[in-house]
Design a protein around this nucleic acid. Sequence first.
DNA 1: AATGAATGAGGTTTCATTCAT
DNA 2: AATGAATGAAACCTCATTCAT
Lengths: 179, 179, 179, 179
Amino acid sequence: MTKQEIITAAAHIIQSEGYDMLTMSSLAQALDVRKASLYYHFDGKEKLIDAIYDHYERECLHLGFSVDFSKDVRTVFSTALAHWKSIFMAPSRSPFISLIQQRREIDERAWDDSNSFRLMIAGQCEAILDNLAASGRLRITSARLMSLMLSTTLYEGLVSQTIDVDAFVEEFIRTYEAS
Amino acid sequence: MTKQEIITAAAHIIQSEGYDMLTMSSLAQALDVRKASLYYHFDGKEKLIDAIYDHYERECLHLGFSVDFSKDVRTVFSTALAHWKSIFMAPSRSPFISLIQQRREIDERAWDDSNSFRLMIAGQCEAILDNLAASGRLRITSARLMSLMLSTTLYEGLVSQTIDVDAFVEEFIRTYEAS
Amino acid sequence: MTKQEIITAAAHIIQSEGYDMLTMSSLAQALDVRKASLYYHFDGKEKLIDAIYDHYERECLHLGFSVDFSKDVRTVFSTALAHWKSIFMAPSRSPFISLIQQRREIDERAWDDSNSFRLMIAGQCEAILDNLAASGRLRITSARLMSLMLSTTLYEGLVSQTIDVDAFVEEFIRTYEAS
Amino acid sequence: MTKQEIITAAAHIIQSEGYDMLTMSSLAQALDVRKASLYYHFDGKEKLIDAIYDHYERECLHLGFSVDFSKDVRTVFSTALAHWKSIFMAPSRSPFISLIQQRREIDERAWDDSNSFRLMIAGQCEAILDNLAASGRLRITSARLMSLMLSTTLYEGLVSQTIDVDAFVEEFIRTYEAS
DNA sequence: AATGAATGAGGTTTCATTCAT
DNA sequence: AATGAATGAAACCTCATTCAT
């Protein structure tokens, strides 16, 4: 059992059963070790939680991203969308998204991470809209305003899965693409 | 001490300290009664939580709303915004918003309520955009798409307070108002 | 079960099994209640220990004492000795003596209490020697020096029971009594 | 790391933090090794404690001592006092004194060692008083009684440091020296 | 000679709950 | 309507110890 495995198992419990169902007991059971063993690897629950944040922040918040704006509108968006999905929906990262959603209102750190994600998407949306509008491929009145709305909607769709982001983006393109 | 007072106190703890800090002990302390007294009013914690949902759902989800579309664009929006703010930010209701935000991923009921709010705003946004676009006062390509983005952004701004909704609406109007 | 009973039971465990054998479990067992019950009466082990000190300090450190110096030397000493024995050896107080002996080197409070007892005996010894020397019934060169030695020896004899205090006092009187 | 170093480190923890703060963990940390390593040297905590007693008993209880009674009173006492201080206050031995003080009421062995020290001082005091009284340099009624009080007071002063032994001895000499 | 990893036992504490009063 | 007293379960954590390497 490595620190890695413990962190992953803990994150999975948080995602599947909820933050307050993560106990040292449930975690030990999930890993098929005894409770005391966990304390060999982490100096208590709080440190473990910190390590979860540390791990996933390293994993998630430094993901590079580049778009080739010379490609057509649909390609630009689908590239970006694939990137975002790989962050928010990939099985290896979604436990973290679930964590910060659950704890946003309570943990400062979850709040900060949540905002980092928002700002990341917002910035990337703005870059895309700016570029595509400037090159006349998208008809958008205010790229700034639109990128706020677009990114908020995408973020919400990606994390809560109440919005079909593929359909939404498709409709967005159809609506704002320059004839 | 009435059921009402208990519910209110519980909701305040959830808002100010987080859902998992609501314990029968902390609640009793907040109300300055002994723990056992709470069991006279509620048959256990689960029933109490149910009662919190019951109470606030009655409070929040049946709030009527009517807009006089003959008024000018700015008035229509500011009326709607005032209404939404009264739901999401009024001290008497914000504890519930905090609750469903915290528990959205975990409690089915919080999830449902959260979606009800979303759908409510979405529907009202769509009605407004439809009407104002139809009467030529707003230049919007697709009222349906725009109301999804607008309502999502407003919802997010109202509950997380990371977006200045007043400034956002003002900019929205400036951008899409028909000259 | 009253706070009183808990304190007494705890002190008895400390005396008979040693300070570090006092656990919430052993205490609960001694009182034939469940561990959790103890927490109804005391907010944790530390507070319980504090309460033990509080209780016995109130019991022990305010014990009045008066000697009738008109009585003969032997009577004066045996009165005083009876008084000291009632403090250090009475079943109701000896657990506390045992506690402060065990913890003198570790707890500030035990150290302070231990010194209070020493000073109490020292003061009373000095008063006795002063008086009996002044009235010519005891031949003592320096009452101050002798009361330091006498009180230290008595204290040690009373708490550790390695010295037979009765025999010691008898010999002391025989040695220093004015012919 | 040698057995010696472990014993010394353990004794220092006992002295500075208290007997119950000596754990295999704290000891390993103090020595900057892993817990398991300690078990290479000692078959468990109990054996380690035994070794501590063994070591310091060998160190302390066989310390030779001789006084040249032909020297003057002050020299005799200051020689003896220097000897006792070297036992009780020397940095290399004081941890053991602290240990037996802390455990006197609990460990048989600490109790025995404590008494050995007492008896040692008592014997040496009696020898000194006997000799100096016999040679007329000290005016003492009963050397036996006085040596009990003197040794008890010295012992207490040396181990608890609540009595200034130098000043005490000086006053003792001034008081009982033959004019 | 040392240690990484694990563990059973037992420690302190908190939780929701009950029940007689 | 309220509460004093108690409790089983389960939380977090520490302890001494073992064992393969």
